[in-house]
Design a protein around this nucleic acid. Structure first.
Lengths: 156, 156
DNA sequence: GATGAAATCCCTGTAAT
DNA sequence: ATTACAGGGATTTCATC
């Protein structure tokens, strides 16, 4: 089943949509009745809006945000990965298979991949990167703090 | 305003917790009754588990995942930012204030910040980075694809 | 054509086993 | 942890603007 392509024209949001998305970003499990109260609409209209935003593809999904530290992932690293000649696809596959790589983007420029890693310890960093370093050069940065945690893009 | 520290000992999850988190990651708005069916427990027990995971800090929040492309953000960039001497705090503040920076980590190493930007066009990249380049050196990579979209860390 | 209102149905939370 | 029960929320239909 192919994902729906984003329409050529971006979806235009009104103030109500923006308030709705902000409220859902804060707590996606709150009841429609509560959302309705927040945005100042009736419950059916509010439910209809949410459905429309899903159908338009603005809402990809409702999900849960996990705190990795609570699970013992005390360390976070951002690794730039530059595959050796001919190893690009294999490297991508290796990254995809290692669950500690929680995010990976393929980018322009010298470093082909930029990835985020969750780790239990500094020793584990070596352990995991060793599966990649045979096939790529890596450059690692340890996360010290997160001035901006993943947030919504501007909705205006 | 200090956030709760992760407990010294990481939270131990059992198979039911793992199934629950996976189901919630897929659709955080599904009713407890449905979750109960999925994990093979009664509804009250399931609701209790969800509450416990929240109280333990494993679940940070329930949120909504927006597709930036549906809103016209056709471009995504990852920018490394190295503030000039004495400009570190100001640079951090500038980044925090620009909503197109949807994510920013402070890291070890030569580049102080690694940020993710959502953009409507390549022209907007210049426009936004110009607010930073007076106070920092930047290095920009355009995202071509995302082999691993933000996923849950290993729960085992 | 979309919003608000009412009725039915289902879900959630509580208490007791 | 489950079952039963009481209360509240969600969805559908209908009427309205």
């Amino acid at each position: 089943m192919s994902k729906r392509l984003a329409s050529i024209a971006p979806v235009a949001l009104d103030d109500t949509d923006r308030a709705l998305l902000a409220a859902l970003a804060q707590d996606a499990r709150q009841p429609v009745s509560e959302l309705a109260r927040v945005v100042g609409l009736s419950a059916p209209s509010t439910a209809e809006r949410v459905r429309r935003l899903e159908a338009q593809g603005v809402i990809e999904r409702f999900t849960v945000q996990i705190d990795p530290r609570a699970l013992g992932f005390t360390l976070q690293a951002i690794v730039r990965v530059k595959p050796l000649p001919g190893q690009l696809h294999l490297v991508e596959e290796v990254i995809r298979r290692i669950p500690e790589f929680v995010e990976c983007d393929k980018v322009t420029g010298d470093d082909c991949f930029i990835c985020r890693l969750y780790l239990h310890s500094i020793e584990q960093l070596d352990e995991i990167l060793s599966k990649v370093t045979e096939r790529a050069e890596t450059s690692t940065a340890i996360v010290k703090s997160t001035p901006v945690a993943r947030r919504l893009p501007p909705l205006g």
